[in-house]
């Protein structure tokens, strides 16, 4: 392509809408968030080994990092969530999903879609679809719509 294609025309537009205009960015410091995410991942592993899936899920879904400046923390959190999802018995899923608060359900749905979009070895499609089905039964289509509209991507 020619050079003019590479010109950032938005830089010349006074009225341009920035990503930060669309949502309030996470005020936390990236380094702290990355640390928190790692600590939570460790915590999650120990909770899973004790079989306390609801507590593990609650830990990782609370204050989940979002926004463009936390890529590391977001990836660590996704791995932690996937670890939880993969180590849950499918018969336990409905009960766990019902126990989550509405915000936690929305955040979990975000991770499910992020998991489906990523291609890591830890991603198991059928597990994600199983969780998705159960979560949709409880939280409805509204939950999916909220994931689609929310710019605070995990």
């Amino acid at each position: 392509m020619n050079n003019w294609r590479r010109i950032d025309i938005d830089a010349y537009d006074e009225d341009v809408v920035h990503e930060t205009d669309l949502y309030d960015p996470d005020p936390r410091d990236p380094a702290t968030v990355a640390n928190d995410a790692k600590q939570k991942a460790t915590q999650v592993r120990s909770l899973i080994s004790r079989g306390d899936i609801p507590a593990a899920l609650a830990a990782v879904l609370t204050d989940a990092p979002y926004g463009s400046q936390f890529e590391d923390a977001k990836n660590v959190s996704l791995s932690a969530v996937l670890l939880i999802l993969n180590s849950t018995k499918s018969t336990d899923i409905p009960g766990i999903v019902k126990g989550l608060s509405q915000d936690e359900q929305d955040t979990l749905m975000k991770y499910l879609y992020k998991g489906m979009a990523s291609q890591g070895t830890e991603v198991n499609g059928s597990v994600l679809l199983g969780w998705h089905e159960k979560l949709t039964e409880v939280a409805g289509t509204g939950c999916i719509v909220r994931v689609m509209t929310d710019r605070r991507t995990v």
Binding site: Q102, T141, G142, C143, V145, R146, T149, D150
Partner: peptide, 27 residues
């Protein structure tokens, strides 16, 4: 009413109280 399937009710004031009803249904 917004496209995230929510209905929000705002009582203005120095510290506005805001109620959000998140629906399971479509917006």
């Amino acid at each position: 009413a917004s496209h995230d399937s929510c209905v929000t009710i705002v009582y203005p004031g120095p510290t506005p109280s805001i109620f959000t009803v998140k629906m399971n249904s479509l917006p």
